[in-house]
Design a binder for these strands. Sequence first.
DNA 1: AGCTATATCCGTCATAGTTC
DNA 2: GAACTATGACGGATATAGCT
Length: 253
Amino acid sequence: MDGMVEENGTSGAAGVADPLSSAGSSAGGAPHVVVTSIVQLTLPTQAPSAQVQSVIQPNQQSVIQTASNIQPVQLPKGNVILVTKPSSVIHTTQGTLQTLQIKPEPNTILSAQGQSCSDDSCSDDESPKRKYREMLTRRPSYRKILNDLGGAEIAVIPADSGLHTLAVSGTAGGGAIVQYANQDGQFYVPEDQTRKRELRLLKNREAARECRRKKKEYIKCLENRVAVLENQNKALIDELKSLKELYCQQKTE
DNA sequence: AGCTATATCCGTCATAGTTC
DNA sequence: GAACTATGACGGATATAGCT
């Protein structure tokens, strides 16, 4: 089972930080942009759960999208977006795409900054070199390699070898668990090692949960981005179509 | 109802990267 | 460089759907 598919969550409405947003501005964090304009968006009342999705490009006509309509909005470089509906989502592209979630308070103001986001994942360390683990590629684990080679096992020193140290297995933290054997060949592990291992497993368990949560958010971001780009594409196609029609009309006149 | 396939979640391991 | 963290890989458990 592919891990990526396995962990793929269902798409949701909540906006989250787009992990791709760090591509052009991650180093050292992006500076705030001076506010020069305010755009107020009021969602249609018939769509209480609607998302506002916008593709905003500085100094260009930008597209503000809602579930029911699309309206181009001029957004000069540096701006404030005032959204009157809580829990709205705004996607922008400012060199890179980013997702901003509007907090439930009414009239939330977001300044357009390089990495603005209300979600905690936005504050994640998003160094380019770590961006989703180099596209999720990784070399095979030793276990997999061993399995591929025919199920070879890590060697265990027999109990009757005269040695008390019986086996050493690698651990998550890069350390090792040393198992001892008594005269009957029974395994036992020193108590502090057991405690350390339990603590490490606990921490790793929680880390895995957090990691999966972030991964789900990342996938949501990608899905949201797809939606935004599809909408943008549709808007551009429509615009092109209407311009063509206009051109044909004028030509025939 | 029983079986099978598929999806999802979770814990653990392995390991690259980070921090101290 | 040791300890720690983040995350892909893996396998087990459970849920759900479709089929017989």
